[in-house]
Protein backbone atom coordinates (compact mmCIF):
# COMPACT_ATOMS: atom_id res chain seq x y z
CA UNK A 1 0.00 0.00 0.00
CA UNK A 2 1.45 3.36 -0.97
CA UNK A 3 1.65 5.96 1.75
CA UNK A 4 -1.06 8.62 1.70
CA UNK A 5 0.07 12.19 1.30
CA UNK A 6 -1.53 15.58 0.97
CA UNK A 7 -0.18 19.10 0.72
CA UNK A 8 -2.55 21.68 2.19
CA UNK A 9 -2.11 25.40 1.58
CA UNK A 10 -3.45 26.68 4.88
CA UNK A 11 -2.61 30.37 4.29
CA UNK A 12 -1.82 32.07 1.00
CA UNK A 13 -0.57 35.57 0.16
CA UNK A 14 -1.58 36.82 3.59
CA UNK A 15 0.16 39.25 5.94
CA UNK A 16 1.24 37.90 9.32
CA UNK A 17 1.05 40.93 11.60
CA UNK A 18 0.95 41.06 15.41
CA UNK A 19 -0.52 37.98 17.10
CA UNK A 20 -1.38 35.50 14.40
CA UNK A 21 -2.42 31.88 13.97
CA UNK A 22 -2.97 29.83 10.85
CA UNK A 23 -6.42 28.38 10.34
CA UNK A 24 -6.88 24.99 12.07
CA UNK A 25 -6.23 22.00 9.82
CA UNK A 26 -7.75 18.62 10.65
CA UNK A 27 -5.49 15.74 9.67
CA UNK A 28 -5.94 12.83 12.08
CA UNK A 29 -5.21 10.46 9.19
CA UNK A 30 -1.62 11.70 8.96
CA UNK A 31 1.22 10.49 11.17
CA UNK A 32 3.68 13.22 10.32
CA UNK A 33 3.86 16.61 8.70
CA UNK A 34 6.34 19.15 7.43
CA UNK A 35 5.15 22.73 7.84
CA UNK A 36 6.63 25.10 5.26
CA UNK A 37 6.50 28.88 5.31
CA UNK A 38 7.33 30.70 2.09
CA UNK A 39 7.93 34.43 2.53
CA UNK A 40 6.69 36.65 -0.29
CA UNK A 41 7.37 40.06 1.30
CA UNK A 42 8.98 41.40 4.48
CA UNK A 43 8.41 44.58 6.45
CA UNK A 44 10.96 45.53 9.15
CA UNK A 45 12.22 41.98 9.58
CA UNK A 46 15.89 41.91 10.69
CA UNK A 47 16.07 38.55 12.49
CA UNK A 48 14.32 35.21 12.20
CA UNK A 49 10.70 35.16 13.32
CA UNK A 50 9.25 32.24 15.28
CA UNK A 51 6.08 30.28 14.73
CA UNK A 52 5.17 27.72 17.39
CA UNK A 53 3.55 24.43 16.36
CA UNK A 54 0.27 23.93 18.20
CA UNK A 55 -1.96 20.88 18.53
CA UNK A 56 -5.53 20.42 19.68
CA UNK A 57 -7.98 17.65 20.57
CA UNK A 58 -10.90 19.42 18.90
CA UNK A 59 -9.72 22.26 16.69
CA UNK A 60 -10.91 24.76 19.30
CA UNK A 61 -8.56 24.49 22.29
CA UNK A 62 -4.82 24.69 21.53
CA UNK A 63 -1.51 24.06 23.25
CA UNK A 64 2.13 24.28 22.19
CA UNK A 65 3.46 21.02 20.76
CA UNK A 66 7.08 21.96 21.45
CA UNK A 67 8.44 22.35 17.93
CA UNK A 68 9.08 25.80 16.52
CA UNK A 69 9.44 26.96 12.94
CA UNK A 70 12.08 29.66 12.56
CA UNK A 71 11.04 31.84 9.63
CA UNK A 72 14.30 32.94 8.10
CA UNK A 73 15.01 36.67 7.89
CA UNK A 74 16.53 36.27 4.44
CA UNK A 75 15.66 32.86 2.93
CA UNK A 76 12.43 32.30 0.99
CA UNK A 77 11.48 28.97 2.55
CA UNK A 78 11.62 27.68 6.12
CA UNK A 79 10.24 24.47 7.59
CA UNK A 80 9.62 22.39 10.72
CA UNK A 81 8.94 18.67 11.10
CA UNK A 82 6.14 17.37 13.32
CA UNK A 83 4.96 13.88 14.19
CA UNK A 84 2.49 12.27 16.60
CA UNK A 85 0.36 15.40 16.58
CA UNK A 86 -3.07 13.85 17.06
CA UNK A 87 -5.87 15.31 14.98
CA UNK A 88 -5.21 19.00 14.45
CA UNK A 89 -2.37 21.33 13.55
CA UNK A 90 -1.77 25.05 13.39
CA UNK A 91 1.11 27.52 13.71
CA UNK A 92 1.02 30.59 15.90
CA UNK A 93 3.36 33.51 16.49
CA UNK A 94 3.77 37.19 17.28
CA UNK A 95 5.50 39.98 15.35
CA UNK A 96 6.34 43.47 16.58
CA UNK A 97 4.14 46.50 15.95
CA UNK A 98 5.76 47.64 12.69
CA UNK A 99 6.67 44.21 11.40
CA UNK A 100 5.00 42.09 8.76
CA UNK A 101 5.57 38.94 6.73
CA UNK A 102 3.52 38.12 3.67
CA UNK A 103 3.48 34.35 3.56
CA UNK A 104 2.23 31.13 2.05
CA UNK A 105 1.94 28.35 4.64
CA UNK A 106 1.88 24.69 3.65
CA UNK A 107 1.34 21.47 5.56
CA UNK A 108 2.88 18.52 3.71
CA UNK A 109 1.15 15.58 5.39
CA UNK A 110 1.93 11.86 5.21
CA UNK A 111 0.11 8.93 6.73
Amino acid sequence: MLRSSHTAVVERNIWWEGEWSTEPYEAAWATRAVAFVRVLERRNIAVDATLRVQISPDGIHWCDEGNVLNVSADKDISFARVSQFGGWLRLTGVLGPEQGLKVVVYLALQG
Binding site: H6, V10, A28, W29, G87
Partner: peptide, 26 residues
Amino acid sequence: LDSILPGFRDLRPPMLSSSAFWDTGS
Protein backbone atom coordinates in the same frame (compact mmCIF):
# COMPACT_ATOMS: atom_id res chain seq x y z
CA LEU B 1 -1.60 36.66 -6.53
CA ASP B 2 -2.67 40.25 -5.84
CA SER B 3 -4.41 40.22 -9.24
CA ILE B 4 -7.02 37.72 -7.97
CA LEU B 5 -10.51 39.20 -7.59
CA PRO B 6 -11.10 39.89 -3.86
CA GLY B 7 -13.84 37.30 -3.41
CA PHE B 8 -11.60 34.54 -4.79
CA ARG B 9 -8.48 35.31 -2.73
CA ASP B 10 -9.17 33.34 0.42
CA LEU B 11 -11.41 30.39 -0.37
CA ARG B 12 -10.56 27.90 2.34
CA PRO B 13 -9.31 24.46 1.25
CA PRO B 14 -10.93 21.05 1.83
CA MET B 15 -9.63 18.65 4.46
CA LEU B 16 -10.30 15.07 5.51
CA SER B 17 -12.34 15.05 8.70
CA SER B 18 -13.47 12.36 11.12
CA SER B 19 -15.81 14.91 12.75
CA ALA B 20 -13.91 15.02 16.03
CA PHE B 21 -16.05 16.95 18.53
CA TRP B 22 -14.85 18.33 21.83
CA ASP B 23 -17.59 16.63 23.86
CA THR B 24 -18.18 13.26 22.20
CA GLY B 25 -15.02 12.61 20.18
CA SER B 26 -14.95 11.34 16.62
